[in-house]
């Protein structure tokens, strides 16, 4: 009898652990190739982003102070970066090289120097 109870408990426990493991896998698996970029007056951090050609990438932005924009003209992608919100850009670089990105919303006296490089290898 004791052995039956133990076996039942063991099976229930195992099931809970199994489901938990699956949930854990489903909800906390880190997304691949997400680059986190912080914008603040008047810089992007990092201001040099490295990606691989043909590999999908996600850029996730936050602003620490004011409304900014991220513009990558060579890939025709852009997004607003709103303070207190996360903005995401998903794209797959289809060419290699070094490309300029910049803030495309005039944000203050240092706006014109707010840019960086995307390096695709």
């Amino acid at each position: 009898m004791d052995m039956k109870i133990d076996r039942r408990k063991f099976l229930i426990g195992s099931s809970i652990l199994g489901i938990g493991a699956i949930c854990s896998f489903a909800f906390s698996e880190p997304e691949e190739n997400v680059i986190f970029v912080i914008a603040k007056k008047f810089e992007f951090s990092p201001n040099e982003i490295h990606l691989k050609m043909g590999v999908p990438a996600i850029l996730e932005f936050t602003s620490l102070d004011t409304l900014m924009g991220f513009n990558l003209p060579d890939f025709k992608v852009r997004t607003d970066i709103v303070p207190g919100m996360k903005s995401r850009l998903s794209f797959t670089p289809d060419k290699a090289g070094t490309f300029t990105f910049y803030c495309d919303i005039f944000c203050g006296s240092g706006h014109e120097d707010m840019n960086g490089l995307l390096i695709v290898s």
């Binding site: 513009n71 003209p73 060579d74 490309f99 300029t100 910049y102 495309d104 014109e112």
Partner: peptide, 8 residues
Amino acid sequence: FDLYPQWD
């Protein structure tokens, strides 16, 4: 027109 958007 888009003269050189990389430089705004």
